[in-house]
């Protein structure tokens, strides 16, 4: 009798062991145990149930994470408004979670904002950037890492001291954008480049407006990745990017390892900058310049 019982238990156990992590959205979940044990297990695509749950999660009332983030990053008494006109343009369903391109489109009423913070709620590193502008900015783009399905939030502080929050829910097919090496077997881009090489590109837009793109080669190690010998690769990332031109500063950006390796940043300025330059500092205190530094300055 006992044997039969054990047998059934074992079968049940093996069934569970085989069901695999299911991608139902976990509102406010941190790095769950099942994810840290098998971070890249392929999950199911979002189903109707998980989509409803995710819609709920975008409501800050239902997010365990949001209140803490709000208090910590926007301030305890911050005046917060969830708005529809701040748009995060990115895929709903992400196959490759190490380099996910996104663009924040800022509505006209907010072009002259005071501060912008991008957050990924369910990442081990939640804050991606915090940007202080010195000019009118219409859009900001970047590549991010995603550990799991998550609400993405962009918080924009306007001239009146109000935080305008834009939100977007994304699903991740293969979790572990922060905790697995960025060397996808299909694309095989895993060669670490030279650290600190900076490229700045300027593109004309309509009516004298301009797009600036900058790429900085940097591993942006999260501190959550284990190398082939089983050792944790220590965190190492860009901490600050300062963008200016001959007329003075354009933007001062604090960055975190939730930005992808070799980060690409995009800024849409309302007015064209003149000879845009970039100055970068990383967590080892190394400094990189897109220009020849003049010692006398």
């Amino acid at each position: 009798m006992f044997k039969v019982f054990l047998f059934i238990m074992l079968i049940l156990y093996s069934k569970f062991a085989y069901s695999g992590p299911f991608s139902d959205f976990k509102a406010g979940a941190g790095l769950s145990e099942e994810l840290s044990s098998s971070p890249t297990e392929r999950r199911n695509k979002p189903n109707s149930e998980s989509i409803v749950q995710s819609r709920d999660a975008l409501d800050s009332q239902n997010s365990e994470m949001w209140n803490d983030l709000q208090n910590e990053l926007l301030g305890k008494n911050a005046k917060v408004f969830f708005v529809a006109d701040v748009k995060i343009i990115m895929q709903d369903y992400i196959e490759e979670a190490h380099k996910v391109p996104l663009i924040v489109a800022i509505p006209k009423r907010l072009h002259n904002f005071n501060k912008l913070i991008l957050l990924i709620e369910n990442n081990p590193i939640q804050q991606v950037i915090s940007l202080k502008p010195y000019r009118s900015i219409e859009a900001i783009g970047m590549n991010v890492r995603l550990e799991d399905d998550s609400p993405i939030r962009v918080a924009i502080l306007d001239k009146d001291g109000n935080w305008n929050i834009g939100s977007k829910m994304v699903f991740v097919a293969s979790a572990g954008g922060c905790s697995t090496p960025a060397c996808d077997p299909a694309i095989e881009v895993c060669e670490p480049g030279i650290v600190g090489k900076i490229a700045v590109k300027e593109y004309e837009r309509e009516a004298g407006a301009q797009r600036i793109k900058l790429k900085i080669t940097h591993p942006m190690e999260t501190g959550f990745v284990v190398d082939t010998d089983g050792e944790i690769i220590p965190e190492y990332f860009i901490k600050n990017i300062h963008v200016d031109d001959i007329d003075g500063p354009i933007a001062d950006i604090t960055t975190f390892a939730a930005l992808s390796s070799d980060p690409v940043l995009l800024l849409d300025l309302s007015e064209k900058g003149q000879s845009v330059r970039v100055h970068v500092m990383d967590s080892h205190g190394l400094e990189f310049f897109s220009y020849k530094k003049d010692i006398s300055m």
């Binding site: 098998s38 971070p39 890249t40 392929r42 293969s174 572990g176 697995t180 090496p181 060397c183 996808d184 077997p185 095989e188 895993c190 082939t228």
Partner: peptide, 9 residues
């Protein structure tokens, strides 16, 4: 490296 990634996958 690719082998390790595939094993994870």
């Amino acid at each position: 490296r690719l082998l390790k990634q595939l094993k994870n996958l």
